[in-house]
Amino acid sequence: MQRKVNQKAWFLVLPVFLLVAFSAVIPLMTVVNYSVQDSFGNNEFFWVGSEWFVEILNSDRFHDALGRQLLFSGIILAIEIPLGIWVALSMPRRGWGASVCLVLMALPLLIPWNVVGTIWQIFARADIGLLGHTLAAMGIDYNYTQSSLSAWITVIVMDVWHWTSLVVLLCYAGLCSIPDAYYQAAKIDGASRWAVFRYIQLPKMQRVLLIAVLLRFMDSFMIYTEPFVVTGGGPGNATTFLSIDLVKMAIGQFDLGPAAAFSLVYFLIVLLLSWVFYTVMTARDGAEA
């Protein structure tokens, strides 16, 4: 007997569809419209064609910000993914210790972005901050307002502190879903700790790791609030990432046309890299099916 599909279910999706239309599709259409025009306000627009795209694609400012952004995301993924796996592997699976660890891991995720930025801005200050003052007392030349290296280290450590928990929680969920029978079989076979990780835990975590990598990549590639609060993009332009540069262009300089072209190129890069990550990490599933 053939099942009849209930088309009325589409009405349940309608509110979400309308919400996405107003919050994403209409703004995106507006950005596309602005990217081919010049505007000085008052809803007056002047057609410029592809001029802003040419300007952005050939701009050293854009190239530099993109380079910094790729470097930042690469460092973040290289630190947070292995660290998150390691912490998840070290956490207890049962008992009160598991609950305590889960609550502790969830805490950084509950703090708003601008509060995280403010905490680290004060914490890392060389004059009154615990971290900055301690490092200065130890004779380490650390000042995130004057040194590019210090600013980068501060922003990276802050992001690791804020977001490694997400990777930990996702990996922990993946590890908890592995049946005990796998570990018992490995024990009977005399598998080493590394073999258990490589052939049982890592494959079983593959799906949650995909989500973790995608979320952390997209979020780190679009990071704005925390570095803006801590360094404001400085010293100089040392921590001016794409989103900070974009806001400077759109709101600081009110260059709506170039900022719209910048946004679209930025959006396409995020889309491409996310698709590549997703495809590479799910390709094995398709091949095995």
């Binding site: 259409m29 596309v32 419209n33 081919v36 025009q37 809803n43």
Partner: peptide, 15 residues
């Protein structure tokens, strides 16, 4: 919808 800055070219693109 003047604030959206529509042009015939972008309207064609989205169509």
């Amino acid at each position: 919808l003047a604030w959206m800055g529509w042009t015939p070219f972008t309207a064609t693109f989205f169509s």
